[in-house]
Simulated assay, not measured.
Amino acid sequence: MVNIIWVFLTVIGIIFAMVNGTMDQVNEAIFNGAAEAVTLCIGLISVLVFWLGMMKIAEDAGLLKKLSLLFRPIVKKLFPDVPNDHPAMGYILSNMMANMFGLGNAATPLGIKAMEELKRLNGGLDVASRSMITFLAINTSSITLIPTMVIAIRMKYESASPTEIVGPTLIASFCSAIGAIIIDRYFYYRRKKKA
């Protein structure tokens, strides 16, 4: 559906440019936008590689394990259906740690593995389990301590203070995570009452 919307918007934009005689500006915007996207991606790769390296150092030093142990009681309350020693719990915790450091790109493969393990726990059914829904809500709204990618983009465009986004991001992501958990639990208990 999203692909259809994008195609529709593109076609409408091109037709509008043809009618208004601004096709040369559209062509210039397309090529400049493509060049800017490539430049931006290459710049962000260096930041991503740096933070992934930091995550690997933290993992080797045992910091991630300690953080996981710290957050395990909270995660266990959020995912009571997942056994402590199940691989899904490790992937969920790793995904949450990557998201906390603003590494959404690194968190994505961990999130996919977590969902695969949660599906396995759900008996391989195509219907989402309680834990799968909760994980999706938390993953989407995750708390971000250091928004590394946003800071990198702000640095790329020469922001006067690229790190001033940290405080607002922490507050906003904390509120969104709490909101997601509340909504998740509300609908879970509402559905449970109806059953």
Rank of each mutant, 00 (worst) to 15 (best):
M1K: 10
N3I: 00
W6A: 13
W6Q: 14
V7Y: 08
F8Q: 11
T10A: 09
T10D: 07
V11F: 08
I12W: 11
G13N: 08
I14K: 00
I15F: 14
F16N: 12
F16K: 11
A17W: 02
V19K: 09
V19H: 01
G21R: 06
M23P: 05
D24C: 00
Q25Y: 04
N27P: 02
E28Y: 06
E28C: 00
A29L: 03
I30S: 03
F31H: 06
F31N: 07
G33A: 03
A34P: 11
A34K: 01
E36C: 00
E36R: 06
A37H: 00
V38K: 05
V38N: 01
L40M: 10
L40N: 01
C41P: 07
I42S: 00
L44V: 01
L48Y: 00
W51P: 02
L52S: 09
M55H: 10
M55K: 02
K56A: 13
I57T: 09
I57A: 14
A58P: 13
L63Y: 13
L63E: 04
L64V: 12
L64W: 11
K65Y: 11
S68H: 12
S68M: 02
I74W: 07
I74P: 07
V75I: 13
D81R: 05
P83S: 04
N84M: 03
D85M: 05
A88G: 04
G90Y: 07
G90N: 13
Y91N: 11
Y91A: 04
I92L: 09
N95Y: 08
M96K: 05
A98D: 03
F101V: 07
F101P: 00
F101K: 03
L103E: 04
L103K: 03
L103V: 03
N105Q: 08
N105S: 04
A106I: 02
A106R: 05
L110A: 01
K113N: 15
A114E: 05
A114S: 07
A114C: 01
M115I: 15
K119F: 00
K119G: 15
R120Q: 13
R120A: 14
N122F: 08
N122Q: 08
N122K: 09
G123K: 12
G124P: 06
L125T: 14
L125Q: 14
D126W: 03
D126F: 13
D126A: 14
V127T: 15
A128K: 15
S129C: 12
I133M: 11
I133V: 15
F135S: 05
L136K: 07
L136F: 10
A137V: 08
L145Y: 11
I146K: 01
P147V: 02
P147F: 01
T148G: 14
I151K: 04
I151C: 01
I151V: 09
A152I: 02
A152G: 09
I153R: 12
I153T: 13
R154A: 11
M155V: 14
E158R: 11
S159E: 05
S159H: 14
A160D: 15
S161D: 15
T163I: 14
T163V: 14
T169F: 06
L170E: 03
I171R: 01
A172M: 09
A172I: 02
S173D: 07
S173K: 07
S176Q: 10
A177F: 08
I178W: 06
G179K: 06
G179F: 04
A180P: 00
A180R: 10
I181Q: 12
I182G: 08
R185I: 15
R185Y: 14
Y186V: 12
Y189I: 08
R191C: 07
K192A: 10
K194R: 15
